[in-house]
């Protein structure tokens, strides 16, 4: 369960002013639910996810992961969180199994449990052939599978995927997509970000549209279709962005 409450993040700019990467956003993601954070590049998706995964501290507002506050209980938040991005690097000189084990130990998972999980996931993702290969000799697809196992080695109830398919070929991307579905089936709360409309359309139970740090819309695909009177997600997105731009321009005129 993820609960985001009036979250804002400002970065100081060189000229002394601040840049609002995330501006007072609120949304929720429940267990067994896939929520998609949809927005163009630079909309604030990665910043939001980095705040949720305790890498960044929010400027104001807060969020909870499984009821733990991201600032007061950062340690518990991290224990309950699996995190995966499309462009995550791996330690090339380690073997696949060593890499997964390293993170299992960092999460404090017992050795036996680690063994069992690696076996279970390797069965599921068909990884036995290359599990003991050095990562530098693995293909992108193999690496991505290792990353998947790494992200779930501590069996977290909440999974965050930041642009999980970016930079991946179509076959590898499919692995990720089916893994995200698998997570939902296991009752996990899933938050993933993307700028690819089709991905959001196919995967998400609910879509949170984000633009220039603000939330434009939040609802199921059907709900969004009704409000915007559009069928295609591309058109829905454009509809909301235009609406937002108009509103801000009006605001700018009023002042």
């Amino acid at each position: 369960m993820i609960k985001v409450m009036n979250l804002s993040k400002e970065f100081p700019k060189k000229d002394g002013t601040v840049f609002s990467a995330v501006d007072d956003i609120c949304f929720e993601a429940k267990d067994s639910e896939i929520v998609c954070l949809l927005g163009v590049n630079g909309a604030g998706k990665t910043t939001t996810m980095r705040i949720l995964s305790t890498i960044f501290k929010p400027s104001s507002g807060t969020a909870e992961i499984q009821g733990y506050d991201i600032q007061k209980n950062a340690q518990h938040v991290r224990e309950n969180l699996g995190f995966l991005t499309g462009d995550t690097g791996l330690y090339n000189r380690l073997r696949g199994s060593e890499f997964i084990r390293y993170f299992g130990r960092l999460y404090g998972v017992a050795e036996k449990t680690i063994d069992a999980r690696i076996k279970e996931m390797a069965d599921m993702l068909d990884m036995h052939d290359f599990l003991d290969k050095k990562i530098e000799f693995m293909s992108t697809g193999m690496k991505q599978k290792v990353s998947i196992v790494r992200s779930i080695i501590h069996d977290p109830p909440v999974m965050i995927f930041d642009e999980p398919t970016s930079g991946l070929d179509i076959l590898t991307a499919r692995n990720i997509v089916s893994f995200i579905r698998e997570c939902k089936q296991r009752g996990k709360c899933v938050l993933f970000s993307t700028h690819i409309m089709r991905e959001a359309e196919r995967l998400a139970d609910r879509i949170v549209m984000i633009h220039k740090g603000k939330i434009l819309a939040n609802g199921t695909l059907d709900e969004l279709r009704i409000v915007s009177e559009q069928t295609d997600l591309d058109d829905i997105f454009v509809y909301y962005v235009n609406k937002f731009t108009d509103e801000t321009e009006v605001l700018a005129h009023e002042f």
Partner: peptide, 17 residues
């Protein structure tokens, strides 16, 4: 090196302090 190879983020998200 971890920054360069993009492994740092994963490490920071892990539950190690």
């Amino acid at each position: 090196g971890e920054k360069e190879r993009r492994t740092l983020e994963t490490l920071l998200v892990s539950s190690a302090a």
